[in-house]
């Protein structure tokens, strides 16, 4: 039993030890790279999403303007989710994906036309509250809505150890297939989770700023400019 406890403590100590920062300048350097990447996005004229884990918020922006902010209640990261380089959203997946209403009509088909004119819209409340976002650099972002219900608190409490215990196994599995596994888990309010699903559309560039503890370990592609 003592051996098991020793192994468990070793495991708990491994990740934090790996993430320890080594310089007071790291934060400023990381911010510099983040700002440079954002400046390039702002110049492009496209909408873009900033995931700022230091400030605990997501911001949908265009030309430097904040169009919408989504506060993050909680976040976890695994691996090296993005390295201050820009990635784009390639897809979204959820257990129950929202579906558009499709009307098939032809000239003179009054019945079909009546169906087409009935009010059925693809609206915000049709969006899921728990889903995954897939970025083109392989990073996965899982979004889950938080709730004030006690069951939700209990589920979130149990989800944390389960998450940290399962991710190494997923990393091993992905290693077998030759791809690294990087994930970011975000939890936010139900309304914000729905709105993020709505507003963050495929092709939209995205930039992640990691918390300083994680950012201290920057991947080799980190760029720093003025």
């Amino acid at each position: 039993m003592r051996i098991l406890i020793f192994y468990f403590l070793l495991l708990l100590g491994f990740v934090p030890a790996a993430l320890a920062g080594d310089s007071a300048l790291t934060g400023l350097q990381q911010l510099n790279a983040f700002l440079q990447a954002e400046y390039d996005l702002a110049k492009s004229g496209k909408s873009y999403l900033l995931i700022d884990l230091q400030e605990h918020q997501l911001q949908l922006k265009a030309s430097g303007l904040v169009l919408e902010s989504f506060p993050i209640d909680n976040s976890r990261s695994w691996g090296q989710p993005m390295d201050l380089s820009v990635a784009s959203l390639t897809g979204k997946s959820s257990l129950v994906s929202p579906e558009r209403d499709v009307h098939v009509v032809s000239v003179g088909e009054q019945d079909a036309a009546d169906t087409a004119q009935t009010l059925k819209a693809f609206e915000l409340h049709d969006m899921p509250t728990s889903y995954r976002l897939h970025l083109d650099n392989g990073t996965e972002i899982s979004v889950r809505a938080t709730s004030s219900h006690w069951f939700s608190h209990l589920r979130n409490l149990l989800a944390v150890p389960a998450w940290y215990l399962s991710r190494p196994l997923i990393s091993n599995w992905n290693f077998l297939w030759g791809s690294p596994y990087n994930e970011l888990a975000l939890s936010m309010s139900e309304q914000d989770a729905r709105k993020l699903y709505w507003a963050f559309s495929e092709g939209t560039p995205c930039l992640i700023r990691l918390p300083e503890a994680v950012a201290a370990l920057a991947p080799p592609s980190l760029g720093t400019k003025q």
């Binding site: 495991l11 790996a18 090296q80 991710r167 190494p168 196994l169 997923i170 990393s171 290693f175 690294p180």
Partner: peptide
């Protein structure tokens, strides 16, 4: 442990 090493 190996999965954690692979991740970082």
């Amino acid at each position: 442990l190996y999965g954690s090493y692979l991740a970082y």
